[in-house]
């Protein structure tokens, strides 16, 4: 038998690695808890009904309230409305285009065109959001001669599109081929089989992908800075500048008079994003293909 003089050391190393892995893994939870804790503790006091239903106070109102020691008036309703409207417009375009494109990629897999599209989709997914901001500025803001909620929607659309395409494509790829064959064997036409059998079967996963895409773009600030710009009044008009919750946090961060509104807005955004995230995961588990 081969004798091992280092057995003790080996066992020690093995133990050590185990402990290191556990300790450092546990440490990664700290930032999450710290961020959640801080936002919750600081933001909790600011949340109220008026905070969600009133627009941002102007600088004068804010200054008066500060010097008088009153609670800050107003809230983030303009941002909530803006986020909702821009997201809705972006999603209405991105969902059908993304699903059709995803079907196309999975159906024409291996074809040169599909391969090219697939690589560019990856490229778009990895493009820094600030670049999307610049590009929409060039494409929409300059020709329309002004910042607008619509420009913000276009930016969010470009950000959502690759995420929806990927989730659709991946789901369609793992659906059994026999499902499609069974539909066609009944004499169903191709488009009916795709839209009435394949897409509904994949719907759970695609829906998860859509929720995750929304939760990703809802917190985006950079692509909105030079597109939607922001605005102090509650506005439903997408041809005018519009605010969004993350955009407001950025404004509050830069305006010494409004700093006390930061944490309430952050708490709202964080709660929304993380709940959407958890919901998506839940659905994914339940509706697994």
């Amino acid at each position: 038998m081969v004798r091992d003089k280092n057995l003790q050391i080996r066992i020690f190393k093995n133990r050590l690695l185990y402990i290191v892995v556990c300790v450092f893994s546990a440490l990664t939870a700290i930032p999450l808890l710290a961020i959640l804790g801080e936002v919750l503790v600081r933001g909790w006091k600011q949340l109220s009904w008026t905070f969600l239903t009133e627009a941002t106070p102007n600088a004068f109102e804010a200054m008066m309230a500060m010097s008088a020691g009153d609670p800050m008036p107003g809230g983030i309703a303009n941002g909530i409305v803006g986020t909702f409207v821009m997201l809705l417009v972006a999603a209405v375009i991105a969902i059908p285009v993304g699903i059709f494109c995803g079907i196309c990629l999975s159906e024409f897999k291996g074809n040169w065109f599909a391969t090219v599209v697939s690589y560019i989709t990856d490229l778009l997914q990895g493009t820094p959001s600030i670049i999307i901001g610049i590009i929409v500025y060039i494409w929409v803001v300059v020709p329309m001669k002004g910042y607008s909620g619509f420009a913000g929607s276009v930016a969010l659309f470009i950000m959502m599109l690759p995420l929806i395409i990927r989730s659709t494509e991946e789901t369609m790829n793992i659906l059994p081929e026999t499902l499609k064959e069974a539909g066609l064997a009944l004499g169903g036409s191709y488009w009916r089989v795709m839209l009435q059998v394949m897409v509904p079967s994949a719907f759970g996963s695609i829906f998860t992908g859509i929720l995750l895409a929304i939760s990703r773009v809802i917190g985006e600030t950079a692509p909105l800075m030079f597109t939607a710009l922001g605005g102090a009044a509650i506005s439903w008009n997408i041809s005018r500048p519009m605010s969004a919750v993350p955009l407001m946090i950025w404004e509050f961060f830069n305006d010494p008079n409004l700093q006390s509104l930061i944490w309430g807005a952050s708490l709202f955004l964080l709660t929304f994003v993380l709940c959407l995230n958890l919901l998506a995961k839940r659905i994914q588990k339940k509706w697994k293909v």
């Binding site: 026999t178 009944l186 169903g188 036409s189 009916r192 079967s201």
Partner: peptide, 25 residues
């Protein structure tokens, strides 16, 4: 045609599965 593995359409109920040929046509 009937396939090797049973493959009723997972998103349709039994009633619609029988009618699937009509629905898909």
């Amino acid at each position: 045609m009937v396939f090797q593995r049973p493959n009723p359409f997972p998103t349709m109920n039994i009633y619609d599965n029988v009618l699937a040929g009509y629905i898909l046509n």
